Computed example of a mutant assay.
Amino acid sequence: MKFDQSQIAIHIKKKALELGFISCGISRAGYLNEEKSRLEKWLQNGMNGEMNYMSRNQEKRLDPTLLFDGAKSVISVLLNYFPKEGQEDSAAPIISKYAYGKDYHFVLKEKLNALLEYIQNEIADCNGRTFVDSAPVLDKAWAAKAGLGWIGKNTNLISVEHGSFFFIGELIVDLEMEPDEKIVSNHCGNCTRCIDACPTNAIVAPYVVDARRCISYQTIELKGDLDENLKGKFANRVFGCDICQDVCPWNLKSEPHNEPDFEPHPRLLKLSNKDWEEMDKSLFNELFRKSAVKRTKYEGLKRNLQFLKDDSSS
């Protein structure tokens, strides 16, 4: 080991900031007791919809030592994606800000791999595994445990310094470290702006989101027909939704990212309503070749566009 035990976390956090992360925190790997009953109740009520993967590997989701052999510490990081500019045509279908640039899975993973490499080369001989939203890890719970923010009433992690327009990633290592003892208290108070603003009433209670009613779930995760009961309630959202974040007072603190990979395709923000309606597969592939929008595929985007069109004509 090249650093004193008390110095390891300091150097890791410094390197994380150098790599472009806006925040980094460390927690001890172990069982997430508090999240167990909340997750079970949410699943029992069927609020995961067609996201069957949420009901699989529940024990692994609650205990990272089952995900990675010898896990001792969870390093949580935040990466800002708040854009400098938005879509120009106010009548055009709206896509979530996180999908403007390159798919975050690749960007975040590359940075986390670089952080792991740094730890292995400069700090200690250890093993680790990176996680970006693609394995059974409760990323918001771990970030909160590491003192990076609190879980808001819209179930997003909110940071006092940065708001909530960021991605969360984890690096689980078999290296013993001093965990961050800081726990950020809940600053939502009596505010219900996110609950009041949700057009589909997906936030069914403070800190509880029924995914089946969420525009993000409907436009991205759902594979079949969109819910006819939600007709006229999509607020022109065609891929994802930022409404509960846009109205959050803590996002007044949001500052534009400086990550080149998150810059949008030059044509994307200029698309008119007509451009979206007439989008063919070749334009879709050009605009979203490396974007998270690829998840819904061309057919899925056209389905969403037709749903919005039916909304406006009904």
Rank of each mutant, 00 (worst) to 15 (best):
D63G: 08
Y104K: 02
Q58S: 09
L66D: 12
D69E: 15
L62S: 13
E59T: 05
L78V: 07
K102D: 06
I123F: 01
T65K: 12
Y53N: 07
F166H: 10
G101M: 13
G163H: 01
G169L: 05
D133Y: 00
N127W: 10
V74F: 05
L66R: 14
F106T: 14
P93F: 04
F68R: 03
Y100L: 08
K111G: 07
E122H: 08
L157Y: 00
V107H: 08
A143V: 14
K111T: 08
M54K: 13
D133T: 05
L79D: 05
V107S: 03
P93K: 05
A91Y: 02
D139S: 12
H162W: 12
I151P: 11
I123K: 11
A141H: 04
Y100T: 08
Y81N: 07
D63F: 00
I172E: 00
D69F: 08
W142R: 05
V132Y: 00
G86P: 01
T65M: 12
I119G: 11
E181Y: 09
G86I: 09
L157R: 02
A99R: 07
T65Y: 00
L157D: 00
K109E: 15
K60G: 12
V132E: 02
L62C: 13
L79T: 11
R56P: 04
Y100C: 01
I94F: 03
Q120I: 03
E117L: 13
L78Y: 06
S159Y: 01
V132N: 08
W150G: 13
A144H: 10
S90A: 15
H162M: 01
Q87L: 12
E181M: 12
W150I: 10
I94Q: 12
D69W: 05
Q58W: 00
G147K: 02
M177H: 08
A99T: 13
R129N: 06
F167A: 00
E181K: 14
G169R: 08
F131Q: 07
L108W: 02
P64A: 08
F106V: 06
F131L: 10
K145C: 03
G152N: 09
S164V: 06
E59D: 10
A92V: 07
G70T: 07
G86W: 04
D133W: 00
C126R: 02
F167S: 01
W142C: 03
L157E: 03
A144S: 10
D89M: 15
S134A: 09
E122T: 10
E117R: 06
A99F: 01
G101I: 11
I151D: 11
K72F: 04
P64E: 10
Y98L: 04
E178I: 15
N121R: 13
D103T: 09
E122G: 02
T130R: 09
